[in-house]
Design a protein around this nucleic acid. Structure first.
Ligand code: FES
Ligand code: FES
Lengths: 143, 143
DNA sequence: GTAAAATCAGATAATAATATCTGATTTAAT
DNA sequence: ATTAAATCAGATATTATTATCTGATTTTAC
């Protein structure tokens, strides 16, 4: 079951974190990223391709090719990756699945959920990828 | 896209809120519930059946039959419905999709997410269905 | 130039989630 | 008794998500 993000998005986030945690000028192949993160390689390859199309990641074709971040890790936020893959609808929709989530027509948990949703958004917005280097590395080393 | 809960769970939550907001001793057919909530009737029928099996809802078969809450709305919490349908894994898993979510092997957002997750859990745990009567009715009237 | 290693594009496959259908059974009203 | 209206069980259909495959193209190293 998905928590909040689709698998595609989760893997995309992980891959970007991986790239941010590694050497900036080097490229990493989808195979290597998949191996390190222990996620399906063809799938992550597709995701990286789409993130390349979105402009978040840049790719180098051919032998010795691979993927790297398109900008400085200090300029990329988790929300950027989410926006590119899953979109931002989750931050506007009712947690109970009712239509028209708004303070005009609130569901029973609208106020509480609204707060949490905002904080979740902040969690993805406040920091940039460079801040996560250490934690990412130790997390990956424990996979 | 799912926010947190599956459609099945969303509809189950809505249906239970509907029942809690209405007359306690009356039964409501899946058709009526579906119509009121504007959700697919066969689907909600299935969901109500499974909630009946879980013991949250009780059903009356045959003509003039239908569904009602199995206990007082004061004894049912949203979390009970979630637990019966989607389970509680979401409250234990990593929002970025990494395995082994714990403070021993935290991902970059583990601390923040942990807090939000706890608050989301509280949101579903603190109050019982009877508290939601009013809000539910006005929400449904605006569908 | 040839071979190897990579992205890339598009098709396909597999699985899960969502939704609907069919018929059986149960119950109440007439 | 008969009929109508409902749950119920199980099959089926549809759609979306996740995952894999195939081959083309690009690039580097030799
Ligand atoms: S209406 Fe439910 S969260 Fe806004
Ligand atoms: S490890 Fe990511 S939320 Fe706990």
């Amino acid at each position: 079951m998905t928590i909040i993000f689709s698998k595609k998005c989760e893997y995309g986030l992980q891959a970007c974190l991986y790239l941010a945690a590694n050497k900036k000028d080097e490229v990493y192949t989808s195979d290597e990223i998949a191996k390190q993160l222990k996620i399906p390689k063809e799938f992550v390859s597709k995701i990286l391709q789409s993130l390349t199309a979105s402009g978040l990641i840049s790719s180098k074709k051919g032998k010795n090719g691979g993927f790297s971040l398109a900008k400085d890790p200090q300029k990329i936020k988790l929300i950027d990756i989410v926006a590119a893959i899953d979109g931002l609808d989750i931050f506007e929709n009712c947690v109970l699945g009712f239509p028209n989530c708004s303070s005009d027509t609130p569901c029973p948990v609208h106020n509480k959920w609204g707060e949490l949703r905002t904080k979740a958004y902040q969690m993805l917005t406040e920091e940039t990828l460079d801040v996560f280097k250490e934690t990412t590395l130790t997390k990956i080393n424990n996979l």
